[in-house]
Design a binder for these strands. Structure first.
Lengths: 243, 243
DNA sequence: CATTCTTAGTTGTACAGTACAACTTACTTA
DNA sequence: TAAGTAAGTTGTACTGTACAACTAAGAATG
């Protein structure tokens, strides 16, 4: 166990000064019902807690006894709330100030995670719910500065989707190329060119066909899966730049 | 002044658990003598300090009394060491673990700054020195996990230079297009195409010509300056991808 | 069983921006 | 006046996307 009581040295090395609170928050994205969604947790209704009953990003204090490092802490919180163990997880940034938490100077290390679409992607915990990422309208107030963090996560996701293969991590184990394109379009909120999209994806050496086809009410589509051990691909161009 | 002593609530809101140390470190880049360089600080030789006499990134503890937020803390440390007040400053990420600092669980918020080239860009402090960013060879051991942080900063810088106008912040107030191209080439460590480079930069609406020319031993070159209020430009393509 | 509908997937032309390389320009120096 | 040098331009080739029309394969319909 880590120890709160540091030896108080004299001179420049002394450590007996106020320490900020240290937390980790995770922005968890998923595509459900054709919409990009985020997992939020309702804070306890206890009036002694900050932002009682408000919705917040899943997260909490770093536990110096249990968490070896920040990433493990984020993985732990992700697993607590969703049961998912190893999704795509990327550090988003950190937010720290004297005023963001009424309990005192605090700094949070924010991560964002992409969860594969699953048939029954329910929120794991009772106080957790998926919220669609509104396109501008109907934003609800979040606890702390979590609205700002969420906004940054969406921006980062959109920006990276322009030139990376990140949406691959939002797909179920098997998917078709039109499926993948649809997820790109959902995240970017604009249509993409079919033929250029296919060319790019197939040239990226990112996915491989499986022996089956997806049957439906029209022409069957080739099913693909992510190649193993694939870190995200960075493309040399963005898609058709919106402006 | 912020207060170290929090009221110890009962129930889930109690705050009397160990808090990690919170620091901010800044990776400060400059181009001097045709080489990308980083500012490092020599740690005190006092044997009671961690990593005595080792070189480290400029940084230190967040001062909850003086620093309103993380960014201000980074700005303060930057000003302390260089005197520079408002360079390009971007958050790089955070590193936190039980073992990175021998004094206990600690988390650092890392920033990186780009300083404009100046005729006499000396390190401001006596214990500070510029080190060239070695291309693989001759890396010196840094304190804490600062080697890792520096490596991440270099990677981030290189990556963004591929498709942004970041190097503009490394330029003196007036510069020529070949000057700018040279800085791109120094950071990327590979040659770029002259005509494509010029086309891209001039189309970016980023710089404007001033009424003077740079005279030299050969044909004079047009001088430019950064347009005011310019945030970095993002290009839709990378430069000629290395592979 | 042929027709229609729908979505998967292909093909062809146009275009934008870069790669590559040769060229012209403007000034210094010998 | 000629040679040297770096700035800046021009022209052709090529890559990958934009746009749009096309073909392909199945289900649903009569």
């Amino acid at each position: 166990m880590a120890d709160n009581r540091e030896k108080a040295l004299d001179g420049p090395g002394r450590l007996d000064f106020p320490r900020p609170l240290t937390t980790v928050d995770v922005v968890i994205f998923i595509v459900r019902e054709g919409v990009l969604q985020v997992l939020l947790i309702q804070r306890p209704t206890d009036e002694n807690e900050p932002f009682p009953a408000a919705w917040a990003l899943p997260g909490g204090f770093v536990d110096t006894g249990r968490d070896a490092d920040l990433q493990s802490c984020a993985v732990r919180k992700l697993k607590d709330k969703t049961g998912v163990v190893s999704p795509y997880l990327e550090q988003l940034g950190s937010w720290g100030s004297a005023t963001r938490d009424p309990r005192g100077w605090s700094a949070t290390h924010a991560y964002f995670a992409l969860l594969p679409a699953a048939p029954l992607a329910s929120a794991g915990a009772a106080d957790a719910r998926w919220f669609p990422v509104g396109t501008g309208k109907g934003k609800l107030k979040l606890a702390f500065d979590h609205a700002e963090i969420l906004e940054a996560a969406i921006q980062r996701l959109r920006s990276k989707v322009e030139y990376t293969s990140l949406p691959a991590y939002l797909m179920p184990p098997e998917f078709t190329l039109p499926d993948l394109q649809r997820v790109y379009e959902i995240v970017l909120d604009r249509p993409l060119e079919k033929s250029a999209f296919r060319t790019r994806m197939l040239a990226a050496d990112l996915i491989e066909p499986v022996a089956r086809m997806r049957k439906g009410p029209s022409r069957p589509a080739q099913l693909y899966r992510l190649k193993k051990t694939k870190s995200p691909i960075y493309f040399a161009r963005t898609f058709n730049p919106p402006t």
